[in-house]
């Protein structure tokens, strides 16, 4: 059987909110090392990769590897019934066709069980090679969210460029153009407000803002976001999940005709 007890249940609620509009159905792959998920959006342009390590759970048991096929909209409906401070436990039998979500209120005076039907999903796993990215930028996640939202009101695509000075986001549309530069900034009081640039080579790539906007639904998971870019490769937008792992989004670049 599989059982995972998560003291900070709100993390799971936030993960679902971040991915449920991008991916419809996906397998949650449970093993003794944790829960992993990999899924593409329906147009095969973006990919979600989630890792929740067993060590981040208060209690974790997985007797044999299980692929739990889940409709994310339905799981989101169930998790919305959990309080933000609730402890969430996931349970599934080896041969079962359901998953149980148990919600415990912080002072243990309310215990709720929700059972959800599982589905059979043919997963399409992609092999993502280890890559030394040409540029890696870490910046405040709220700042990235704001930039992507602001640019979305002006254009459909953004050119993301990284030089040793910083990262730039540019767009253009019927009403005009916009260009935002965030400079490397490590002289701030709080580490989470820093913008850092690691660069081997300047890089500039074009991406659909609609997808970048969707990724920023994960902002609540982490105060910082890491953008990894290489010429002619998908961008990686990574939100680290404290003590547990990460939520990563990959987005294929656009190419000039």
């Amino acid at each position: 059987m599989f059982e995972g007890r998560l003291l900070q249940g709100s993390l799971l609620k936030k993960v679902l909110e971040a991915i449920k509009d991008l991916v419809t159905d996906t397998n949650f792959d449970c093993s003794e090392t944790g829960i992993a998920l990999q899924a593409m959006d329906s147009s095969h342009v973006a990919l979600v990769s989630l890792l929740l390590k067993d060590t981040g759970f208060d209690h974790f048991r997985c007797d044999r590897n299980l692929a739990l096929g889940i409709n994310l909209q339905n799981m989101s409906k169930m998790l919305k019934c959990a309080g933000n401070d609730d402890i969430i436990t996931l349970k599934a039998e080896d041969e079962g066709d359901t998953i149980t979500f148990m919600f415990e209120s912080p002072n243990q005076d309310k215990i709720s069980d929700f059972e959800m039907k599982l589905m059979d999903i043919d997963s399409e796993h992609l092999g993502i090679p280890d890559t030394d990215y040409q540029a890696i930028v870490t910046m405040p996640s709220a700042e990235f969210q704001r930039i992507v939202r602001d640019l979305s009101s002006i254009g459909d695509t953004a050119v993301i460029g990284v030089t040793k000075e910083g990262i730039s986001f540019s767009t253009g549309g019927d009403i005009g153009k916009a260009n935002i530069v965030c400079r490397q900034n490590t002289n701030v009081d709080k580490e989470e407000d820093q913008t850092t640039v690691e660069i081997h080579e300047p890089v500039s790539l074009t991406f659909a803002l609609r997808y970048l906007n969707s990724f920023t639904k994960a902002t609540a998971l982490s105060p910082q976001v890491t953008l990894s870019l290489s010429k002619e490769l998908p961008i990686v937008v990574e939100y680290k999940i404290e003590k547990m792992g990460f939520l990563r989004f990959y987005l294929a670049p656009k190419i000039e005709e």
């Binding site: 992609l126 695509t157 659909a208 190419i255």
Partner: peptide, 14 residues
């Protein structure tokens, strides 16, 4: 308008 690449052009299906 630039063309949208597909992820399968970068990553192998496994």
């Amino acid at each position: 308008t630039p063309l949208q690449n597909n992820l399968s052009e970068f990553f192998a299906m496994i």
